[in-house]
Simulated assay, not measured.
Amino acid sequence: MSAKPRYDAVAITLHWVIALGIIFELALGWSMATLSFPLATKFTLYQLHKSVGVTVLLAVVLRLLWRATHKPP
Rank of each mutant, 00 (worst) to 15 (best):
L39G: 01
A33Y: 07
Q47R: 11
L20W: 10
R67V: 09
A3Y: 02
G53W: 13
Y46V: 01
Y7L: 11
V10G: 03
V60Y: 12
V60F: 11
A59M: 11
K71R: 15
P38S: 07
A27W: 02
K42S: 03
L64K: 14
L35E: 07
E25K: 00
H70D: 07
V56P: 11
S31W: 02
T69M: 15
G29V: 02
L14H: 08
Y46H: 06
F24A: 00
A59Q: 09
H49Y: 14
W30M: 06
V17F: 00
H15T: 10
I12W: 11
L48E: 04
F43M: 05
L62C: 02
T13Y: 11
P38W: 05
A59D: 10
Q47I: 09
F24M: 02
I12R: 12
I23M: 00
Y46D: 03
K71G: 14
T41Q: 05
L20E: 06
V60R: 12
G29S: 05
F43D: 06
V54G: 07
M32E: 10
K71A: 15
V56G: 11
S2R: 08
L14T: 12
L64E: 15
V10C: 07
G53L: 11
M32G: 04
I18S: 05
T69C: 10
L58D: 10
L57Q: 07
L26D: 02
S31I: 04
L39P: 03
M32N: 10
L26S: 03
L45S: 01
A40E: 03
M1R: 11
L14W: 08
E25T: 00
S51E: 13
W30K: 06
V17I: 00
Q47G: 08
R6F: 08
R6S: 10
I12C: 07
V54M: 14
F37E: 01
K42C: 03
A9D: 15
P73E: 05
F37D: 01
I18N: 05
L28D: 02
R63H: 14
H70A: 06
L45D: 00
L26P: 02
L35G: 04
V61E: 07
A11M: 13
L64Q: 13
V10I: 08
A19L: 07
L48C: 05
F37V: 00
